[in-house]
Amino acid sequence: MQHMRTSGPGDEVAALDVRAVSHSYGQKRALNDVSFSIAPATFTVLLGLNGAGKTTLFSLISHLYDTRHGSIRIFSHDIRRASGEALRRVGIVFQARTLDLDLSVYQNLSYHASLHGIGGREARQRIAALLETVDMQGRQHDKARSLSGGQMRRIEIARALLHRPSLLLLDEATVGLDIESRAGILATIRKLVQAEGIGVLWATHLIDEVEDADHVVILRRGDLVASGKVSDVIRANGGSSIRETFSKLSRVDAAGMTETLP
């Protein structure tokens, strides 16, 4: 078992603590004894090629799947035993689009607010403020169907922030977006970490989304192969850049095959 702490002082409550988590789909193992923790107010990139287990890990953290092996704690709340308390602290942007296309932007956000027990004036105020944050003010009455991919993502980010989570999970949030939209979304999330102290777990297979100041968790075929500050991971693996290190760590040993980076 590899247990790695990405950052933070030793006695601080971890934003996310994943311990010895394994998960299988029938005979196929998707996660194998994965352990890591992330500190509050840090931007952590969950790196892995397709099939590495990122989405499975997200499904376990968000309690869509049951954690049968190992434990997951969000600000010390166990996702199995206190799922309500844990989920109150998490905002999630799923890889697949999850807006209701038949409803307006406001109706989508208002629905999410109600799912967190937020209604009335408070919901309206939060929606207005967050639409401004994601640069979508004045679009609340637009049908979700009429938005571009990048705009939908921004609305989904606003939605994930509505209940003021302390931990934000984003699964491949920039997939399918143009470079400008990707950069904008990434910048918005990074600013949230600094301005609001939100911990972020950003799953991606795109190495150029990692910055030197970030923390990384690298998965390969369900195994955790590295975790920590980018500089520490590079140093520990004898690389010169995170791209090179990720390439090396993502290499599939079996049959001498090597997967290429995007």
Partner: peptide, 13 residues
């Protein structure tokens, strides 16, 4: 999307 200016404390945690 251009990176928008964060209008103060937007969310809180």
């Amino acid at each position: 999307m251009s990176a928008p200016a964060m209008p103060g404390k937007v969310a809180g945690i």
